[in-house]
Simulated scan of single mutants.
Amino acid sequence: MTADRDADDVSGRRDRITIVAYDPRWPASFDHQRNRIEAALGNGLVGRVEHVGSTAVPGLAAKPIIDMLALVSDYDQTAGLVTALGDIGWVHAPEPGDHERRKWSFCYPDVVWRTHHLHIWEVGSPDWRRLLPFRDYLRRHPDLAAEYARLKAELAAVDDSDRPRYRSGKAPFIQDILRRAVPGRAGAGS
């Protein structure tokens, strides 16, 4: 399979939206891949790779795909990044608009059966900054994390193959959490 194939439709198979109970092994799986990524990319990274998204919130039901965030100072200074990640089994999986938004996406072990999804952003981009406050707020508010889990399960139950509808259905909840987590600032995401 090539990296630029659409993950939502490969050989007629759909990448279904499946929400599962929280798996206490997710943090260890994240740590394992973080260590591999940090070793492969070394000084090309700004700070540590972060565990983001629903799998980063203890107790939160989620799609069983571990979302990860890595920052680089400038894409023009990241020669070899795709090769370095490819050498450790990560597949470059560009999403629509990645270059315009200064973001790169990678999947492990492949696009369709991925267990991990790595989002690499330029540190100067404002777009990644919603991920950490959203995660941290849900970690501090298990009642809201449970509400988010219910919403995701309901959306997936209606149509488990319509990712745009799933994302747009979550957007109001995410924006509300971001307004609470970062007063004066809202956005879509996670």
Rank of each mutant, 00 (worst) to 15 (best):
Y108E: 04
C107K: 15
R101N: 10
R150C: 12
D159Q: 05
W104V: 01
T115Q: 11
V123R: 06
L151Y: 00
R140H: 15
V111A: 07
S161C: 14
S105L: 11
W113K: 05
A145R: 13
L132R: 11
D98H: 06
A156C: 01
E100Y: 10
A146M: 05
D159S: 11
Y108R: 06
R139I: 05
S161H: 14
R129D: 07
P126V: 15
K103H: 14
T115L: 03
D127G: 14
H99S: 04
L118T: 08
A153L: 06
L118K: 06
H99R: 10
L131E: 13
C107A: 14
P142A: 04
W121N: 05
R139L: 02
E100K: 09
S105D: 06
Y108H: 09
L155V: 06
R114D: 03
L144H: 10
H141Q: 12
W128K: 01
R130W: 12
D110T: 10
W113I: 11
E122A: 02
P142W: 03
K103W: 09
L131H: 15
E154Q: 08
R139D: 07
T115G: 13
G124W: 04
R139T: 08
D127F: 13
E147Y: 13
Y148K: 08
E154Y: 04
A156V: 11
D160G: 08
L151K: 11
Y148W: 09
V158L: 08
K103F: 11
K103D: 03
V123M: 04
H141P: 11
P109W: 05
F106I: 06
S125I: 15
S105W: 15
S161W: 14
L131P: 00
L138A: 07
S161T: 12
L144A: 09
R129M: 00
V112I: 02
V111K: 12
L138I: 07
R140I: 13
A157N: 08
A149R: 14
H141D: 03
V112E: 06
V112H: 15
A146S: 08
D159A: 02
E154L: 04
H99V: 13
V111M: 11
S161Y: 15
P126W: 15
L118I: 11
W113H: 15
K103T: 11
A157I: 05
L118P: 00
H141T: 08
I120Y: 02
P133Q: 01
E122V: 02
L132Q: 07
A149V: 05
F134Q: 06
P109K: 10
H99D: 03
R114A: 03
Y148F: 04
F106H: 06
R135Y: 06
L132K: 10
P142L: 00
A146V: 13
H116V: 05
R135S: 11
V112T: 12
R102K: 14
D110K: 07
L118M: 13
C107N: 07
R139S: 02
H117D: 12
V123A: 03
K152P: 01
R101T: 02
S125R: 15
P109G: 03
A149I: 09
S105F: 05
H119I: 07
F106E: 08
P109L: 07
F134G: 04
P126A: 01
V112C: 06
R129T: 09
A156M: 02
E147T: 12
E154G: 02
E100A: 04
C107R: 13
L131F: 11
R140Q: 14
A149F: 09
H141L: 01
V111G: 14
H116D: 00
